[in-house]
Nucleic acid binder design. Structure first.
Lengths: 122, 122
DNA sequence: TGTTATAGTACCCAAAATGATACTAAAGGA
DNA sequence: TCCTTTAGTATCATTTTGGGTACTATAACA
């Protein structure tokens, strides 16, 4: 979470606080149904510098939306996956995805990310 | 919209870009089913300075989520209401509201805004 | 003549978020 | 001995966002 206050003005703000970070929605989206390593996320989200990617991942972890697993090997291996809480946020992402896709289509805007809508079983 | 690019990395980002501003969700939420004047919004969202409130309202207007109506009277009278596009975003707000409310309740956090969930007819 | 109401603006400053670039550790293999 | 791999850090600079305070116009009203 970005803010550390214990009082929000609205539950919507609390939600936005958890998924509103620069790359958070994209990270969560990529993690739906997938366990990914840091390097894989970097390739999927090349516009994020390693510093930003790390920062966003740490915040998501602090908020218990994702689980970070470190394998004690060299070179390092770290995996990221959605937690139950992270999975519970999926309907929000899907609703936003659909609305955004409609909006962009109707306005002739393009999307660089070619990600497909995840299938039910993913 | 905050960013002026015509290419997004993900439709979710496009959506967040439109409702992610500091007071945007709160403004939209208050406007569900209500037409409000500037002064009324100020009272409902006292933590926003007039400058910020104006700024957020202008951005929402630019994005066609709200409609601003100026009555040529003295003292000035300006009304804000949701556009059709603004109304179409309501399910997203509701989904986020519900998730956020659950999350806050489960974590013993409080909300200063006592707004009720809007009824179907509002 | 002075006061009130309304919807803002103007200006300046502080803080937060983001970005660019370079750098590290440590094991295994060439 | 040097190179490669991986998951990051460190440092510094820039951009974006947010906040404080004071100010404006104009008609009606006392």
């Amino acid at each position: 979470m970005n803010s550390d206050c214990t009082t929000y003005h609205c539950p919507v703000d609390a939600t936005l606080d958890m998924i509103g970070g620069k790359y958070k929605a994209l990270i969560l989206w990529h993690l739906i149904g997938n366990t990914l390593r840091f390097g894989e996320l970097r390739k999927l989200i090349p516009q994020a510098t390693p510093k930003m990617l790390t920062q966003q991942l740490r915040e998501l972890e602090e908020d218990h939306l994702i689980i970070r697993t470190v394998y004690p090997v060299v070179p390092p291996k770290v995996e990221y996956m959605l937690s139950d809480l992270g999975n519970s946020i999926r309907p929000i992402l899907e609703t936003m995805y659909n609305w955004g896709a409609d909006y962009l289509r109707e306005n002739g805007l393009t999307v660089s990310c070619s990600m497909k809508f995840p299938t039910k079983d993913s």
